[in-house]
Amino acid sequence: MLLIPCPFCGEREESEFHQGGEAHIVRPKDPDELSDAEWADYLFLRKNTKGLFLERWVHLHGCRRWFNMARNTATNEIIAVYKMGAQPPKAAINKPPKTAVDKPPKAVGKGAKK
C-alpha cells in the first residue's frame, strides 16, 4: 500500500487514488498526418521502466485533482509529486534512488560490517 502525498490534501492511502499511466504524453497536433507506426507509438507504446517512472495520478476519492508523480517502480519509493503541466523537479529526478535497482540486500551476519 502506497502512502501518496497528494499535492493538495497531503498524504493519503493509495486506495483513494487511481493511476493514469505514463505522464507527459503529448497528443499529436495533427493525427491525420501521422504514419500508422507513429499513431501506434502514441496509442500503445509506453515507458515501462524498472526504476524512475513519471506517471499521472488522480485523487479519485479525494479532491479529484490530477497530478504527476515520480516513483521508483522497483522499490515504490515516491521521489516527487508535481502539478499537471509542470516538468519534473530536476533535483528529484537526478537524485540516485535510495535503494539500488536489482542489487541483492547487504550481507548480514558473519562477515558483515559491524
Partner: peptide
C-alpha cells in the same frame, strides 16, 4: 494492482 511496478509484492487494499 492499480499502478505499474516490479515489486513482486502488491498493495494490501
Amino acid at each position: 494492482d492499480g499502478a505499474h511496478g516490479y515489486t513482486q509484492r502488491g498493495s494490501l487494499h
